[in-house]
Design a binder for these strands. Structure first.
Lengths: 206, 206
DNA sequence: AGTACGATGTGGACAGTGTCAAGACCTGAG
DNA sequence: CTCAGGTCTTGACACTGTCCACATCGTACT
């Protein structure tokens, strides 16, 4: 149970929660370890014992985000005809974009984080990201089996779809999307874009 | 000409150059005004007189990037049949992705920058970004005139294409693309993805 | 039981940072 | 020649990330 005063009990979780708050309020650019510690009601250098580094804390937060997104993917995939690749892909795309807009704090840290982490390959962070991307890859494999996508193009289609989702999410969250969307809710844009993708994948034209 | 010792002469340009160097070396997360000043051979608070703020310096660098990209767009568009929307779009996409990979310093600052800048709308930064996006919009208008895209879908197609370019560029620069691309140069991925897009836009299937 | 140990949290220190204010320096218009 | 305004310097302040020595707690071992 830990004494009231000294040991926190679940500082690990509390710090991740504080990170979420701060990032949501001020963007992750001016997140500070000391303020996260302050919000968790703990001394300024306590976080080091749990995450080692500022980098470590942000990595842990990003991993948490990937796990949340992966869970959404799996929940979505379970509620859809597992043999229809287009349906599956649309639901994954919707889940991805919805997550990005509903939880921008996690999303921006997951992707806006540090470029070219020194030892990124093989790290827990990269594995969490790969686990996420695997869901998308499997859906594209389904498309190949259905003859909607040539096998030689599978990797490029997967890249294109993930890129499109990521790009749209990033641009939307950064307010970089053109002003003629001001009359739209995000759901409207989502429906419109998904309609275009579905039209393209089903062989017609946009 | 300015004296050798006191006045720098072209500190504005020199600081932007220093930013480019530092971002290329260490990522823009740990860029510091003081180091930029140091590299320009100038006192630690000289930059404030030109850019006011760290935010201001990064904004200026981002604007420079948007201008460079817009220039590439215009050069590309001039070298292509101005009546073929698909050709035009492919050349714009290639220019975009090539720029992002060749000049990641500018690119990451242009887009990895600060979320939800307070007074972003109407700022010179947003205008530079809009000028860039206009080139893409015009190409989609061409597609509509050619009957390849329904007018009602035009906005979504533009969003989808820009999103795809942005997403792929960001993922590539962050080494987030799946490891099965290790055997590819970026040109190979670019060719593959462009082939898929062209196939989709021309009405076949991927 | 008691004791040593590792995990957890504290406090102080250090260099580095962004920003502000006051002043030194130079240029050019009057 | 003067003096006003843009350019640059110096000094200061609060804040940050990281390191260190130390305090406190739970626990496994003897």
């Amino acid at each position: 149970m830990a004494t009231d005063t000294y040991h926190h009990g679940d500082l690990h979780r509390a710090l991740l929660g504080a990170v979420g708050e701060i990032v949501a309020e001020k963007g992750f650019q001016d997140l500070s370890l000391r303020e996260a510690a302050r919000r968790a009601g703990v001394s300024h250098s306590a976080p080091a014992h749990h995450f080692g580094d500022k980098e470590g804390l942000l990595d842990a937060f990003a991993i948490e985000g990937f796990e949340l997104l992966t869970a959404r993917f799996d929940a979505t995939a379970a509620a859809v005809d597992p043999d229809d690749g287009v349906d599956l892909l649309e639901s994954l795309g919707r889940a991805y974009l919805t997550f990005a807009v509903e939880d921008p704090a996690h999303y921006t840290v997951m992707f806006g984080h540090d470029k070219t982490h020194d030892d990124y390959v093989g790290s827990p962070l990269s594995e969490a990201g790969d686990a996420c991307f695997d869901r998308l890859t499997q859906a594209v494999v389904l498309l190949v089996r259905q003859g909607r996508v040539a096998e030689a193009d599978a990797r490029y289609v997967a890249t294109l779809l993930w890129g499109a989702c990521h790009g749209i999410a990033a641009l939307w969250n950064d307010d970089k999307l053109p002003h003629f969307y001001e009359d739209h809710t995000f759901e409207g844009v989502l429906d419109g874009v998904m309609g275009v993708i579905r039209g393209l994948l089903e062989g017609g034209r946009a």
